[in-house]
Amino acid sequence: MASELSKSPVPDAQSVREQSLAVSGLACERDGRLLFEGLEFTLAPGAAVQVEGANGAGKSTLIRTLIGSASDFTGTIAWQGLAFPRGLAAMRASLLYIGHYAGVRRGLTPLENLAWYGAGQDDAMRALELVGLYGFEDVLCQQLSAGQNRRVALARLYLPDSPPLWILDEPLAALDVTGVAGLETQMNCHLRRGGSVLLTSHQPVNIAPLQRVNLADFSPRMAVEEELHRAV
């Protein structure tokens, strides 16, 4: 069954090359605690970035800041050369985000969930089959396990016409070995098609070309606690 992936017009190279996410001098704070500062990286089309860091180092806060959910940060985030907030609307138009919460409605079936994300009937069936949910297409998500619900969310990555920028928070969590392999293959395929992936993960991910960004390297030079000690 040779699936015809290129239904949409082929974008010219100029618009693909420009779809890059540039982060410079980014500092995020949460509850008065400075998580990191001076963060620098650029996510070019066809490349991937893995954000690492201990729990509580600010990975989720960084992700929420990148998708524009959190707004108290300094530094610049630019999509297609356009800094936030003007660039945010354009970035969201080409963003596929899977957060800590799967974004799958428990009252709907996997098929209805994918239909809600704009997928056709047969694309959704194939995507669900690829994530190993064959036969569960019409079961209410509330009856599926947490792992299966997560796979319904990940099925969005297997839909054709997927947005170029993927931002995934801990995508490999709660996935078995075959699930991880399939996801890595799909991410590599997405990168080859000129898309870009930004993900957080504790375990190594074999996708190429991969840039690893560790938040520990950008921890605040003078943590506020030390400032406290200096005053004492």
Partner: peptide, 12 residues
């Protein structure tokens, strides 16, 4: 959009 999402952060 510019006014609503003004990123000025006076705390600093």
């Amino acid at each position: 959009a510019n006014m609503k999402l003004s990123w000025q952060w006076f705390h600093r």
